[in-house]
Amino acid sequence: MSLIHCIYASSATRSFEVADIPSLLEHARAKNARLGITGMLLYIEGSIFQVLEGDAGSVDSIYTAISADRRHARVTQIIREPIAHRAFEDWTMGFESLDRGQASRLLGVNDFFATASCLERINPGRAKKLLFAFASGRWRADQTGVHVARARVA
């Protein structure tokens, strides 16, 4: 079994709202549990960021399903690579919804991810860095966020 993670960003379609996510997740978590998939989903005002981790075959097949899902568009794979450890071991799919203001305010806090439950003990590494980038505006549909680097020193 080879462990990988696949991380992508997308835009929710107009008819798909944050209120629709819990029912989506209910089904997704059951399926993820069956397939040994863990990860997290971050939703910021219509922009979606998801980390999927697990066995390569399972991750790839879920990702294929997700990328064809009409509830979101512009599904952009950011990274797919082998990993040594899962970053979200205890989460069949963590979920956090933030507005832009919350996201950028939280970046100033020393440990941004301590404030979101599923991000509490995330290992440093690629998934965390990319979450940070997304929270600061990268990979978002509007692309209006602050530069990560600048946010980091602030």
Partner: peptide, 11 residues
């Protein structure tokens, strides 16, 4: 280079 690396989670 920094922008590309930030976008890809590269230190």
């Amino acid at each position: 280079v920094l922008q590309v690396c930030d976008d890809l989670g590269i230190e």
